[in-house]
């Protein structure tokens, strides 16, 4: 199968607590997959297993047909697997431009400084931060920090971006700005897994939706159909 991400039987426990149990999920190249679930359902644990932060998990994860077992987070990033964090994690001592050059300077092979800066500038223009290239992250607003996080993630032109709650705490119009960015990024061929609580955004964005509840994937399919299933309504929407 030609999936960009192929997860089989993914399980993760913390002591006696089972955070993920038998998760199977595939993402096709260029696909937009939405991942929803109530707090504590295992979404972030799923991301951390894929990104390599929790390497000791059960099951198999294939990225572009290559098993990720044994690869460290930076090696996975270099393969084209990008992620953002729930809370923006900028490099605070670096300027906005330098932040975006980091994945380019540490790609394989690394881009020379001038090329990395030129490409980082193009990324900043794309997310609308070109005027703040020489600012430091502490002077950015919340939405700009999210944009910086996205610019850093998209700079190396990844095959898959896992956007972990990039719209949390943003206003209506700011959510639209981030959505436009993600659509544009996806238009270039990057597959996106969007993990989000903003239902308006996730239904607008996702071609396919998966729902996690208590560490299990309870349903997967077309967003409207999935959200209308009684299990999802009961478990996720609480109605």
């Amino acid at each position: 199968m030609n999936a960009v991400l192929d997860v089989r039987g993914l399980g993760k426990t913390f002591g006696g607590f089972t955070a993920l149990n038998g998760i199977a999920l595939t993402v096709a190249p260029g696909e937009r997959l939405g991942l929803v679930g109530p707090n504590g359902s295992g979404k972030s644990t799923f991301v951390n297993c894929i990104a390599g932060d929790f390497p000791d998990h059960a099951g198999v994860v294939l990225f572009r047909n290559r098993p990720l077992a044994g690869l460290k987070p930076h090696e996975r990033a270099r393969l084209g697997l990008s992620r953002t964090f729930q809370l923006p994690r900028p490099f605070r001592s670096l300027t906005v431009l330098e932040n975006v050059t980091v994945p380019l300077r540490f790609s394989v092979p690394p881009l020379p400084v001038a090329d990395a800066r030129a490409r980082a500038r193009a990324c900043l223009e794309r997310v609308g931060l070109q005027d703040k290239a020489h600012s430091h992250p502490h002077s950015l607003t919340q939405v700009d920090l999210r944009k910086l996080e996205l610019a850093r993630a998209l700079a190396p032109e990844p095959a898959l971006l896992i956007a972990d709650e990039v719209m949390a705490g943003l206003s209506h119009s700011e959510v639209d700005q981030i959505l436009d960015l993600l659509f544009a990024l996806n238009g270039d061929g990057t597959a996106v897994i969007m993990i989000e609580h903003v239902m308006r955004a996730i239904t607008a964005f996702s071609q396919r939706l998966a729902v996690f509840v208590a560490g299990r994937k309870i349903v997967e399919g077309d967003p409207q159909t999935v959200l209308a299933t009684p299990e999802v309504e009961a478990a996720y929407l609480g109605t």
Partner: peptide, 25 residues
């Protein structure tokens, strides 16, 4: 140098550095 840039990212946020491809160890 590139080493200095990488060390600065480790100092600022080691997990984010690894996610950006920096071989932290």
């Amino acid at each position: 140098s590139r080493l200095g840039l990488g060390l600065a990212t480790i100092r600022d946020d080691e997990r984010a550095a690894a996610a950006a491809g920096v071989p932290t160890l």
